[in-house]
């Protein structure tokens, strides 16, 4: 399936969970938060919540600012 991860088009196997998306793309899991299509997915749901085709996934963390 094709999804967007942090704005980048990405091809992944269909039916992956949020946890599997992070693992597959080698993204950090500490101090990050994930939103799928503009809704935060709590860390406690990462291993159950699946990412559908055409989803937009945002993975954010704290950087310098303010």
């Amino acid at each position: 399936m094709s999804i967007h991860v942090n704005g980048r088009p990405t091809d992944l196997r269909t039916g992956l969970t949020v946890q599997e998306v992070l693992t597959t793309l080698n993204l950090p899991r500490r101090d990050v938060a994930v939103a799928v299509d503009g809704v935060v997915v709590p860390r406690s749901s990462w291993s159950e919540s699946t990412v559908g085709p055409d989803s937009s996934v945002e993975v954010v963390t704290a950087m310098q600012g303010g």
Binding site: V60, T61, A62, M63, Q64, G66
Partner: peptide
């Protein structure tokens, strides 16, 4: 101390 929320990248986090 303030921080901004940004997409994960190679940059180093001040946390």
């Amino acid at each position: 101390v303030t921080v901004a929320m940004r997409r994960v990248s190679a940059g180093s986090s001040p946390l």
